[in-house]
Design a protein around this nucleic acid. Structure first.
Lengths: 201, 201
DNA sequence: AAGCTTATTGACCGGTCGGCCAGTTAGCAT
DNA sequence: ATGCTAACTGGCCGACCGGTCAATAAGCTT
């Protein structure tokens, strides 16, 4: 049943290349990474990368696709386990999203690169996630748990974008005077956000 | 007094190179732009770019520095004309910042590139701006115009990051289902944000 | 008019880029 | 054992990279 200790293992090789490529692309972006870098980081020859992926561009696409799938399934799982709409659960969702990003800095940087590229290949998956999130908020609005005079999509977008930018621009604002830790910021943001989406008196 | 119509004008040349470089770097990032591209876009030879800027890296730094100075002085002017703390003025500041970013998409993309680079060269200017903004909020808190149980820096950061991400990731979320226009989003964000930072009952 | 400075050019450089290809070798089916 | 397929290698390629340099020419000073 268990794989024999063969000297060749194409799947394992593909995986090693993907992993090395993910690290390099996430760190430096697509164009400044070279095939030689990729090859030596993965411990294989350039030719072998071409054999498995065809070209540098297609390797980059494979890396992005894989990362998006990971992100998508993780978020979908979080959405499904969130259960019935409830004001407390919105808070929990924001916290969960924030901590997911904190635990997955590679995903954050990958998103940032794709934003700049104008890549829209993950559009379908993202639209699906956002649609589900907005629907969840809409139900909470109908039950009077959240204010109903704002677009549900905008509610989700607000917290998603704030969390995303917090980690994407970390290097930029981490030295701002008075800026707190991740947890301190999250706590303050939640105070503002939860009070902001609470039903109007 | 007026400049003669000379065939040579080094300052004008420098400017043309800077403008072409800004457009290309903003669009494609540093590493995927080539000197040949820059030269033909600016209508000069590669050698002339080296003559005026020394290297590709130093041209990139000049472009960033210039953009940061523009941004910094524009923001400082906005802060100074904001005047005395007031809840209505916070709303106006958010709107002004949002519309500044909307009117300066190049600056937005430049920030995004520098975030990914981990560039912190604009740290001092940014810290100064953020310090002034946070001080402004702190005074409003002391006067009871804003809730005082959140870090003033976090209040400023929240709206700055939301506005920034709205434009940085536009290509990403503009196709999300239910997402409104710039103005519709800004209006909803302001509803949430202003209610969120209002003094507690 | 002469001379100096410097903006500007075009030819050129070594190095490296992504990619290709012929050849080798490991695993597997028969 | 014998082929066959595909993983894998090393060497090579033309293109292009950022950068240099000697030569030219425009504008300024005197």
């Amino acid at each position: 049943m268990n794989k024999p200790a063969t000297t060749r293992d194409p799947e394992q090789t593909r995986l090693r290349i993907m992993e090395a490529a993910t690290d390099l692309f996430v760190e430096q972006g697509f164009s400044s990474v070279t095939m030689s870098q990729l090859a030596s980081a993965a411990g294989v020859t350039k030719s072998l990368i071409h054999h498995h992926f065809g070209s540098k561009e297609r390797l980059w696409e494979a890396v992005k696709e894989h990362a998006f799938e990971q992100y998508f399934s993780a978020q979908m799982a979080m959405l499904e386990e969130a259960g019935e709409p409830d004001a407390g659960l919105l808070r929990a969702s924001v916290e969960a999203y924030f901590h997911y990003l904190k635990a997955n800095p590679k995903a954050v940087r990958l998103f940032a690169w794709t934003h700049l590229e104008g890549d829209t290949s993950c559009g379908d998956m993202d639209a699906q996630l956002m649609g589900a999130g907005a629907e969840w908020v809409r139900q909470a609005q109908q039950r009077g748990l959240l204010r109903a005079d704002v677009n549900p999509t905008h509610i989700v977008a607000t917290f998603v974008m704030t969390c995303t930018q917090w980690f994407e621009a970390k290097c930029h604002h981490q030295h701002w005077p008075g800026m707190g830790s991740d947890e301190a910021f999250l706590e303050d943001f939640l105070k503002i956000f939860m009070a902001g989406v609470a039903p109007r008196d």
